[in-house]
């Protein structure tokens, strides 16, 4: 796993990962906003976390399960209507290169 740089957010890199196209003005604006967000979150560093387990979810819910029982699926036509395109019952997407 890449260890994230906790002091700085590389806006261009994150935008690229998220497939977001930003112009120069947006990069500058977001950079200062994200730096502020990061500074805000860094206040947590002042606390002592000795012996505190990481929390993966703020809600104390556990074991939310469903039983293994088949339910109705969407109608094919309805599903395809939502797709960008269709070919031979498949969702048509730009050619993928492996």
């Amino acid at each position: 796993m890449n260890t994230p740089d906790t002091d700085h957010i590389d806006v261009r890199y994150v935008a690229k990962l998220a497939r977001i196209d930003l112009d120069e003005a947006e990069v500058t604006a977001l950079q200062s906003q994200l730096d502020e967000v990061l500074a805000f979150v860094h206040q947590l560093d002042e606390l002592d976390f000795e012996g505190v387990e990481p929390l993966s979810h703020p809600h104390p819910l556990e074991n939310v399960f469903r039983e293994d029982v088949v339910e109705a699926s969407l109608e094919h036509e309805e599903m395809i209507r939502n797709a960008p395109g269709a070919v031979q019952q498949l969702v048509r997407v730009p050619q993928m290169i492996e």
């Binding site: 469903r66 029982v69 088949v70 339910e71 109705a72 699926s73 094919h76 019952q89």
Partner: peptide, 28 residues
């Protein structure tokens, strides 16, 4: 299993394409 991991769509390999799908497994 009879159904998918996050929804009640059946797990089967012999169904016509895109007939065992729902808002959950399509990520709506």
């Amino acid at each position: 299993t009879n159904t998918k991991i996050w929804c009640g769509c059946a797990v089967r390999s012999d169904a016509p394409p895109n007939t065992l799908v729902c808002p959950v497994c399509l990520g709506y």
